[in-house]
Amino acid sequence: MRLKLKDLPEENIFSSGHTACAGCGAAMAIRNIAKVLGKEIIIYVPASCLSVFNGLFPSCAWTVPYHHTVFENTGAAISGLSRAMKRKGLDNVTVVGIAGDGGTADIGLQALSGAAERNEDVIYICYDNEAYMNTGVQRSGATPHGASTTTTPVGKLTKGKQDFKKDIPLIMMAHSVPYVATASVSFPLDLINKVKKAKETKGFRYLQVYAPCVPGWGYEQSKTVELGKLAVECGMWFLLECENGRLKINREPKMNNLETYLKMQGRFRHMDEKQIAELQESIERKWEFYKGYAELTQRLYGGSEASV
């Protein structure tokens, strides 16, 4: 049964009183994710915006058990928590790690890969705001091509990030784990149903959620949802789901309006025609790749449809 928004409980698991910025995509996504996960969970948060805006001692916005130690160990910490729950006979408790894109794509990639390879019984959620926002907007492996950050500034020699976004969901699919999905704060029905599916699946589950950052991306705080919709329309974000090796594309992008998406954000405003063309070309290649990958995996692993 697919969840509807009205099925979510009134009560927050990630409660109000947290200190995220107005319009924070991560906070919005996490609030809904937590409602689907319910109270029988343990949350691990590595160093990230979330580890700060979820409250500092003696306050905590989480109403469920919470653990935090360092930056790069989410995969390992949730492994330890999951095994401890097994020893305690608490099989009903879901262990969930929520990390940022830096903590996932860069410094935490090794521990993430190890936990996935061992098929630990955990959910790993990456909220992707495409840079190190907690330390004040430095580029991460997940920062898209062209974006200006404080470490890929617009200068005389280069303008914005010269490299391309690291495709972590694809890396996770290569680990052959039971469930890998991408979602977006702007598609809450798709998001909550993916969280539900993750919760109902055993083994290692990975979810990467598009989460706009108002100060980091430089846009109007009321435009978070609109931006997320445009991202999926133009192909800067794909809604995907890979179950037991079978990739499914949840929403066909129109592959247009890239420029509209870019111009809404301060981080892309400097981009010239050449840079935009490069970016357009890269996302079109990515789209072709995913279409082909979906067809191939449906053929290899069986399944009804390559896209919805």
């Binding site: 160990n73 095994r83 729950m85 090794q110 190890g114």
Partner: peptide, 26 residues
């Protein structure tokens, strides 16, 4: 015993900190 064949010592200590924090002898 639950035995986690981690991919580094950094992960070894991270995992046992988490399991001990969860109240299990590690």
């Amino acid at each position: 015993c639950e035995y986690i064949n981690v991919e580094s010592e950094h992960s070894a200590i991270s995992a046992v900190i988490a399991s001990q924090a969860a109240g299990v002898r590690s």
